[in-house]
Amino acid sequence: MSDLLHSTLRSNSSTNIAGMSSGAQTPAVPYSRPTSPGAGGNPIQIGFVGIGAMGALMAKNLANYRATHVPGSPAILVWNRTASKCEALLNELGPSKIRIAQALEQVATECDMIITNLANDEVIKSVFQQLAETLKDAPPQRNKIFIETSTIYPTLAGELDLLISSIPHCRLITSPVFGTPLVAASAQLVIVMSGDYRSKKEAAHTLVPAVGRKVIDLGGNLEKAPTFKLIGNSMILGTLEIFAESYTLAEKSGIASAEVHNLVKELFPAPGLIRYSERMSQNYFDASTGFSIDGGIKDASHIRRLTAVHNAPMPSIDIAHQHLITARAIHNSRVQAGKPTVEVLDWSGIVAGTRVAAGLDGFESPAGVVEEE
């Protein structure tokens, strides 16, 4: 969902996979190609569940890539609770690349590989319960791989595995991704994987380079990839909090936001950081090309829960969580008053929380120098 880690990794081509010796080059796909991909050597049927801001772009890139690079590959079967999002994708790509499932049960029974990208843990668990119930009534006769790409709390992986592993020939891997919709659109996501080795091989060679640019393997424990994703997001969120506080102090002390942004570009020359800084400096908080504040609050809640379990305090995340909630409350009040600045607030809007705490306007901070009294 966030592109800070993506930007950092991209700037260092010698970044190591966990377990590799320092200085070793990280392959884009850290597995050999499966010797017998798919069912009987035929192209597999892929299903994609969750055609949201990220999912639609991932499904689109996957469909385009397979149509060009995998001869005879069937159209991607897509399903979303809001059917209009699937219809928009079908209209854009055509029936040779996209088919719309009439029900979630159709995805369960027809697909060899099912990729999910959904909003929150509750929705994910509900979807997997429906998939599992369908397959228990109609057990598959060949291998079926489930790839969960959302940001989840780690213990949910175990719950999902109990559902899936009880079904013959079914395997689950957790595979969260790093990157904003802008990164997803260019198929440059960084993909993290945990779970069954053979399934990871199949998934990695399906997703890279179609959807992402590299895979980081975290072993067989399904909880490791979701944990790693939360650790990465804690770095990004902590940086956003520092930026928000610095912009607020600059405004209070009479420093133009443009000057702060120029300093960010000098000190933190990572595209992801620069993009978030630019949003704060220009009061541009539209999540249509970013990451929603609701998603940020969900992730912050997961991170705080994880820090409590492991007795590893992250006070910066505690404060960031408060400021995210404050920013969302201000935005919601503007929506109710008929004065929204954007439809969906980006999590860079966290700066509204620090501004209000300092006695400033949340979303309409002047870009220029504050006049001295």
Rank of each mutant, 00 (worst) to 15 (best):
D3E: 14
L4A: 03
T8H: 02
S11M: 04
V29P: 10
S32A: 15
P37H: 02
P37R: 07
Q45H: 10
F48K: 02
G52S: 09
K60G: 03
L62N: 01
A63H: 08
A63N: 06
N64L: 14
N64Y: 00
Y65F: 14
Y65N: 09
T68F: 04
V70N: 12
A75T: 06
K85A: 08
E87G: 00
I98Q: 12
R99Q: 15
T109V: 15
C111V: 05
M113F: 14
L118I: 15
I124Q: 05
I124F: 01
K125Y: 12
K125W: 03
V127Q: 07
Q130L: 12
A132C: 07
D137H: 01
N143M: 03
N143S: 13
S150A: 14
Y153N: 08
P154V: 07
P154Q: 03
E159A: 08
E159F: 04
H169D: 06
C170R: 09
C170D: 02
I173P: 07
T174D: 03
S175R: 02
F178N: 10
F178A: 10
P181Q: 05
L182R: 13
L182C: 01
A184H: 02
A185L: 13
Q188V: 03
L189G: 06
G195N: 09
D196L: 06
A204T: 06
P209T: 02
G212E: 07
K214V: 10
D217Q: 10
N221R: 05
K224W: 01
K229Q: 01
I231S: 08
S234E: 08
I236F: 11
G238Q: 10
E241Q: 15
I242K: 00
S246I: 11
G254A: 12
G254T: 04
A256W: 06
N262D: 14
L263R: 06
L263E: 04
R275L: 06
Y284H: 15
Y284F: 13
D286L: 04
D299R: 11
H302K: 05
R305G: 09
R305S: 15
L306T: 02
V309S: 10
N311P: 00
N311H: 15
S316V: 15
D318N: 13
I319H: 09
A327N: 11
V335A: 04
V344P: 01
D346E: 03
W347M: 15
V351A: 11
G353E: 03
V356P: 01
A357V: 06
G359S: 09
L360W: 02
L360P: 00
D361N: 08
E364Y: 01
E372L: 09
